[in-house]
Design a protein around this nucleic acid. Structure first.
Lengths: 348, 348
DNA sequence: CTGAAAGCGCTAACAA
DNA sequence: TTGTTAGCGCTTTCAG
C-alpha cells in the first residue's frame, strides 16, 4: 500500500500521449481531443486507479474550491441548521466547507481566519461575536469575499445576512398584548451582541406602543460572562435562574418573552418545579424555533427563524460574489414568523 | 484590492535574500539562519502583509493538513458533540476538518470520500450507515488512514471506535428489573444499523438473564425507511407513534426502553397526551444522554455515551496513524453509563 | 487535434 | 549561514 501515487504523467506514458492531453480529458476541459484518445485515457485512468491531486490544480488555478465557515459552535442547533444549508449549496457548486468553531473566543476566531486564508479560501461565511474587527480590512484587502450572518459587522465591504430580531420580538410581544397580557416580562442572557440588543429593542417598542411601562423586575438580563463556551445546558440553567429572580418580583407578570428557546425551556422547567402553571398562570414565549420547542410540554410558542434558508442564501450570495457577479443586495434581512403553540394563552 | 498576492520571492527581493532563506524563516524550520536575517525577513513579511500560500507547501510536502469527517448529519446533536471533540484535537495538531454530511445517502458518502481523497486528505473519520463497502479497499490501498466511529465497518484495515451499545441497553434494562419491573418494553427505529441491533441484543440479554420472556407487543420496531434525511423531529414523532402502538397491547408494560433520547422524548410526550403518568404508570428510559434529556419533565433517565471523548479519541488515533505510529488498539469500545433521573421509578 | 515547456508557491537537496 | 536548482501535479499558452 501507499506506493508512489499515479499522476497524469503515468497515464500519458501508458497511452503514448502527453500530459497536456491527459489533463484536458481528465479535467473535463472543452478543449478538443479526439474521442478515440479520450477513451484510451479514461480507460487508463480507471485501470491505474488514478485519483487526481487537486492541490496541483488548485495551486495552478489559485482556487482551493473550499469556503470557510466560522461560527461560535456547531453544537448550537441553530448553527447546525445554518451549516446544513450552506453545505448543500456549496456542494452543488463543487465547493467544500472548512468548518471552524470559534467558541466565542476572539483569539481562536482570528487564528481560524488566518488559517483559512493560508489555505487559499476565497470566501468566508462568518458569524462573529467578538466586537473588535481591526484586522478585518487587512484580510478583505486581499480579495476574500466575506458574508456575515446573524451577527452584524460594521464594515461596508462585508455583505450582511441577518434576521430581523427586533421585529420578531415585537411580533411575539404584540401577540401577548393582543391576548390580553399587559404585565409582560423579558428574560435574556447578557445583551452583548447585536441580536440580543435588537430583541430587547423589539420588546421595548411593542410595550411602548401599547402604552405599557414594564416594571424593572420584569426585565431580567444576566451578567455578561463572555468567556464561557457555548452549551445548551448553560442556556437552560440560565432560564431557570432568571425565572427564580423573576418570581421574586412584587407584582408578578402574566407572560414572559425569552431570548431563545433553550432559555424558555429552562423557564418552563423551573415554573413546573415551583408549581406555577404554564400557560395558566404564566405564558411563556421562546425564540428561534429549534426542534426542541415542539418537544416540550406544553409545546413552546416561539418565533421561527428561517435558519436553513439563511445558510442557503448566504452561500448563494458568497458564490455569486466569488464569481465576480456583485450580489444584488448588500444586506438582506430575513423575516421571522410567530409560531403559536401551547405555552402562551389568552388572558381571561 | 486583490492585487497579485505577495510570495516569498517578493520578500526575498526586498531583503536581498534567496527564497530558500525566506522559506526557512517563515516556515519555522530549524535550519540555521542568522538572527539578523531572521528579523529582516520577518519584518518584511509583516510589512508586505504576507500570507503564506499553503497550497504550495502542501503540494510539495504532499500533505494537505486536513482531515475528513463524514457523518450522517451534523444536525444530530450526537454527532455535533463528536465533531467538537475531533476538531479540538485536530486544531491542536495543526489540522483542519473538512466536514461532510452524508445524509445517510450512500451515493453522497462515496462522492465525498472521492473528493476528500482528491483534496489529498490523509486521514478520514467516518460514521457510515451504508452497508456496502466494496469501494473501501480501493481507497485504503492508497494509504489513507481511516477510523470508523459509532457504526462498525467490517474491514481489518479500518480502525474502530465504538460504544458498547449492547452493554448500555443491558445496564438500563437491568436497572429496571432491579427496580421491580418485569413487563419491560423496547421501542426502536428500524434495526438497520449495528448500533440498534446491539441495543436490541442488550435488551434481550437482560430479559433472558432475568428469566423474562417479553410479549411480542412490547417490542415495537419501526419500518425501515432508509431514504429519509435525519431529523430530530422525525425521531420524536416516531416515539409518539410507537407509543400509540404499544398502548394497544393487551397487557401493558410498566416500563419502556427506547433506542435514543429523542424517541424517548416522543414517548413521554405521547404518554402525557394520553394521560399516562410518567413514571407513575410507566417508566421511560432513553439512550444517548443528549442535552435535551435534562430538559424534559420528568427529566429523562438515560444511558450516557461519552460522545465528545469519542471524537477526541478518534482524532488522536487518526493522528497517531498518520504519523506512522501504529495505534495500540485496533478496536476500542467506550463504555456507557446509566444516568438515573426522574422518568424511571421503582415499582411498588 | 496534439505536444513541449513554463510556471503556480513552496521546500529541500546539494553546493558554496 | 546562504544560495542554486529542481521539482511537487497540474494547467495553459503557444507551436506544430
Amino acid at each position: 500500500m501507499s506506493e508512489k501515487p499515479v499522476t497524469i504523467y503515468d497515464i500519458a506514458q501508458l497511452v503514448n500521449a502527453s500530459a497536456a492531453t491527459v489533463s484536458r480529458v481528465l479535467s473535463n476541459s472543452d478543449y478538443p481531443v479526439s474521442s478515440e484518445m479520450r477513451d484510451k485515457i479514461k480507460n487508463a485512468a480507471k485501470q491505474l486507479n488514478y485519483t487526481p491531486n487537486m492541490l496541483g490544480r488548485q495551486l495552478k488555478k489559485n482556487d482551493s474550491m473550499s469556503i470557510g465557515v466560522i461560527i461560535p459552535s456547531i453544537s448550537n442547533p441553530f448553527y447546525a441548521d445554518v451549516v446544513l444549508g450552506i453545505e448543500e449549496i456549496a456542494r452543488n457548486g463543487g465547493y467544500q466547507v472548512l468548518l471552524c468553531n470559534s467558541h466565542q473566543n476572539p483569539k481562536l476566531e482570528a487564528e481560524y481566519l488566518q488559517t483559512l486564508l493560508e489555505k487559499q479560501v476565497k470566501g468566508i461565511i462568518l458569524s462573529s461575536i467578538s466586537p473588535k474587527k481591526g484586522w478585518l480590512n487587512a484580510y478583505l484587502d486581499k480579495g476574500v469575499k466575506m458574508i456575515s450572518i446573524d451577527q452584524r459587522i460594521n464594515n461596508r465591504q462585508v455583505y450582511q445576512l441577518g434576521f430581523d430580531y427586533r421585529y420578531g420580538a415585537y411580533l411575539a410581544c404584540e401577540y401577548l398584548i393582543q391576548s390580553g397580557h399587559r404585565r409582560i416580562a423579558f428574560l435574556s442572557a447578557a445583551l452583548n451582541r447585536p441580536s440580543r440588543l435588537q430583541l430587547h429593542q423589539g420588546y421595548q417598542d411593542a410595550m411602548r406602543k401599547a402604552g405599557i411601562v414594564p416594571l424593572k423586575e420584569w426585565v431580567q438580563i444576566s451578567e455578561d460572562c463572555e468567556n464561557t463556551a457555548y452549551s445548551s445546558t448553560f442556556e437552560f440553567n440560565n432560564g431557570k435562574e432568571l425565572t427564580r429572580k423573576l418570581l421574586m418580583a412584587d407584582e408578578r407578570p402574566t407572560a414572559v418573552l425569552c431570548c431563545n428557546d433553550l432559555t424558555a425551556a429552562g423557564v418552563i422547567n423551573e415554573l413546573k418545579e415551583q408549581k406555577v402553571d404554564v400557560p395558566g398562570q404564566l405564558s411563556v414565549i421562546g425564540f428561534d424555533n429549534i426542534d426542541l420547542s415542539q418537544m416540550l410540554t406544553p409545546s413552546l410558542s416561539t418565533v421561527n427563524l428561517p435558519k436553513y434558508q439563511m445558510g442557503v442564501l448566504a452561500c448563494r450570495m458568497l458564490m455569486d460574489l466569488m464569481n465576480g457577479s456583485a450580489a444584488a443586495e448588500k444586506e438582506i434581512m430575513l423575516q421571522p414568523e410567530f409560531i403559536p403553540r401551547d405555552s402562551a394563552a389568552k388572558l381571561e
